[in-house]
Amino acid sequence: MKTILKNISWRSWRVWQRNFDVYKATWKVNFIPPLLEPLLYLLAFGFGFGNLIQNVTYEGQAVTYLKFLAPGLVASAIMNHGFFETTYASFVRMYFQKTYDAILSTPLMLEDVILGEIIWGATKALLAGSFMLVIACLWGLISWTAALMMLPIAFLAGMAFSGMGMCFTAVVKNIEMFNFPVFLLITPMFLFSSVFFPIESLPRWTQYVAQAMPLTFLVSVLRALVMGHFYQPHIIQIVGLLAIAVICTFLSIFLMKKKLLK
């Protein structure tokens, strides 16, 4: 813990810059899918599914299904892009491309590399969330002011999900093993964290599990900002995301050091 703190430095920024350079070089590939994704979701749920459900009750207030759904989709984009960047993409860099090895032969320490990767994952999450937000704003589902307030939350949540991803990257033996966290963690969160329906409609015991999911925190905070119903519990949820981000960052660095520098 002490050495981790000692070795973390601003040089993490160099790792972020490396990833950003690669991102810029292949921007067409990086840009278009996350931009299309929200459109597809909104089309499917807006015109397809949305016609079956007229209104949803939120805080005793009736809202259209699309308005209910929009912040949930922003949240799941943040989770997916943050988590996938530090799992599959980081694993490829670490294991197949030996990028970490190369960086470690410079003044950077492993702590810098891992922190830089997690911040980069959070950046990708922020970008994906922003694309979704722009579409949702243009669609009239979210106000521009609410969207702006969501950006720092998006980055913070990105740190939390990227940090979680990096913990798995530090322990898996091969890339196929990521199927476990994806099917056991990411998919259940996507389905049960009130992205698509209020948690209250679940059986009671499932509600308790759903309430503890990090994605539930994020959806709840973003939805509160959209609806203008921001209360104290939401602050606790933000603190929760912050705690996950900090703990997972340290834990992943600790696990990585054990894996790579033994």
Binding site: R18, A25, Q97, K98, T99
Partner: peptide
Amino acid sequence: EDNLDPDL
């Protein structure tokens, strides 16, 4: 081993 950056 070759650890050049194939992305660059």
